[in-house]
Amino acid sequence: MSRRSTQGVVFVHACPKALCQHVEWALERVVGAPVSLTWADQPAAHGSYRAEIAWTGGTGTGSRLVAALRQWPMLRFEVTEEASHGNDGERMAYVPGHGVFRAPMSANGDLIITEQQLRHLAATATSVEAFRHGVDELLGAPWDADLEVYRHAGDSSPITWLHQVV
């Protein structure tokens, strides 16, 4: 018997009405169980809808959820995966025109920048401003800047739990 080893949340920040059911089907394929999201109007994008769903499953489920959702380049979404035994947590975000952002996440939700990333940035940045810009990129600032208005539109939305079949 396999045990569930991690959990996380999928935030679909903006999805056209015509794709809502397709998003549910994509999530179902990853977790192997029926998914029924509670969709709400997304006031930040006319004609779009938003939904949140918490999930439990094996390590790497977050990455598989991102892969399933990125087949629709007009979606805006985030997926988190909490740390599990032997694995860091992760935050992944997708924004049209920026692609996927992916970073390790600490237990309190902070993003982690590694020593090697900082050494590389320090060695290649040509100015203080270039270094600052590089740190912003490592922290996902362009994704956060785009998604912030969509996140606020979802404050106080209910979260449903999604469990992976194992």
Rank of each mutant, 00 (worst) to 15 (best):
L27F: 04
F77C: 03
V10T: 01
A14L: 02
W72G: 02
G8F: 02
R132H: 12
V79I: 05
A40S: 12
G32K: 06
G58W: 13
E52G: 13
V100I: 08
C20K: 01
S84W: 08
S84V: 01
P104S: 09
L69K: 08
D155Y: 15
S48W: 05
M105F: 01
V79L: 03
C15W: 02
S36W: 03
G109M: 05
L138C: 10
M74S: 10
D136T: 10
Q116G: 07
A44K: 00
H133I: 04
W161M: 08
P104K: 07
A14G: 10
G86Q: 04
T114D: 04
Q71N: 12
S106E: 14
K17C: 10
G60P: 03
Q42Y: 11
T6W: 02
A122C: 14
I53Y: 00
R151E: 10
Q42C: 09
V79Q: 00
S36A: 05
W72Q: 05
L138G: 08
R50D: 14
T114I: 09
A130S: 15
T114H: 10
G89P: 03
L138R: 11
E129P: 07
A14W: 02
D110S: 15
G134L: 08
A153P: 05
Q116N: 10
G109W: 09
A122D: 04
A68L: 03
T126D: 15
H163I: 12
R29T: 15
H22Q: 12
G134P: 11
R29N: 14
R3T: 13
E24P: 11
M92N: 04
A107D: 11
L138V: 01
M74Y: 05
F131P: 08
A153L: 05
D144F: 15
G32D: 03
E90T: 07
H120E: 05
A26P: 01
A18N: 06
H152S: 08
W39P: 04
R3N: 12
M74P: 11
S127N: 11
N108P: 06
A153Q: 14
Q71Y: 01
L75G: 05
V166E: 07
M105E: 09
V135E: 11
H85W: 15
I113L: 02
A123H: 12
Q164S: 09
P16G: 08
A18Q: 07
V66E: 03
E24H: 00
N108C: 11
Q71W: 10
G134V: 05
A40V: 01
L138M: 10
V149W: 06
H46N: 11
T6V: 04
N87P: 03
V9T: 13
G58T: 06
V31M: 08
Q7E: 06
R102P: 06
M105C: 08
G8Y: 02
A125R: 01
W25A: 13
A44R: 06
G32F: 02
L118F: 09
G8A: 04
T6E: 00
S5L: 09
E115S: 09
S2T: 15
V135N: 07
L69R: 05
G97S: 09
